[in-house]
Simulated scan of single mutants.
Amino acid sequence: MDFVLPSEPRPVRLMNTVWADRGGVHDALTTPADLARWLTATGLTAAEPPATAADLRTAVTLRDALRRLAALTTDDSRAAARSALQDAEAAVHAVNEAAVAGPGRATLQLLDGKLSLRAPEPAADPGAALAVVAAEGIDLLTGSGVLNACYAPGCVLYFVRDHPRREWCSTACGNRARAARHYQRHRTTRTAP
């Protein structure tokens, strides 16, 4: 299974395990095995550790909390992108609860006279890995990136704006949005008296 937008930060990648296509809105985390694959794909675990139903519930709660807070941060009003958690206070509590369960964060290291970031070692279990995502989500939601909602027709994804002119999560969504505008423009001129 491929996960969407693999170049985005891990909290955004977790939020984007809810995605949409012409068939509707889908969830990429429906089984503990899906969670184990996602943790490995994001580099949080060295191998696919066995994930439990409780780990899956934790991941889905964290994802829904991050999506709710992302909607708050980006003024996202897309109905299809709504999170199962509608209370922002509950979302903050869920993210904080997940974050405190984890191992140490990234640290600084001095190599050859230069400072560099040393990422934490891959987690041994899904709970610790999700705590890393929660901590990264806290950093993301409090200003370390410009989080945006993709308003292309039918899209429910979030992305970090890495260029001032970026409006959509992907070129496919940009093309879909431009095509929809073109269609709407030509449709209204044809129907006008």
Rank of each mutant, 00 (worst) to 15 (best):
H26M: 02
T30C: 02
M15E: 06
R63N: 10
G24N: 08
S83H: 12
L35I: 15
T61H: 05
L14N: 02
T17P: 09
M15R: 06
L56G: 03
T73M: 07
L62V: 12
A28S: 02
R63F: 12
W19R: 10
P9G: 02
A33N: 06
L72E: 15
D87Q: 15
D21L: 07
T40D: 13
T31S: 14
A54L: 15
L44Q: 07
T31F: 02
L39M: 11
D34Q: 14
V60W: 04
V12E: 10
R68W: 15
A65S: 03
W38E: 09
D76F: 02
A47E: 12
V12R: 07
L39F: 11
D76S: 01
L39E: 05
T31Y: 10
A84T: 13
W19P: 03
S77P: 04
A47Y: 11
L35A: 14
V12M: 08
D87W: 15
L85G: 10
T58D: 09
R10P: 07
A71L: 15
T17Y: 05
G23A: 14
L62W: 07
R10H: 01
R68T: 10
A36V: 00
T58V: 06
V12G: 09
T45A: 01
R57C: 08
L66G: 10
L35E: 13
R67T: 04
L39H: 05
L62Y: 09
T58W: 01
R68I: 12
S83R: 09
M15K: 05
D75M: 00
E48R: 03
H26E: 03
P9H: 04
A81L: 02
S77R: 06
E48H: 01
A59G: 13
H26Q: 04
L14V: 02
A65D: 06
L66H: 05
V12D: 08
R67P: 02
A33D: 09
L39T: 03
A71K: 12
R67W: 04
V18C: 05
T58P: 00
A28W: 00
D64A: 01
R68D: 12
G43L: 14
A47L: 08
A36C: 03
H26W: 07
R37V: 10
P49M: 05
D64M: 01
L39C: 13
T40M: 14
A70G: 10
T58Q: 11
T58F: 01
A71E: 13
A36R: 06
D34C: 11
L69G: 08
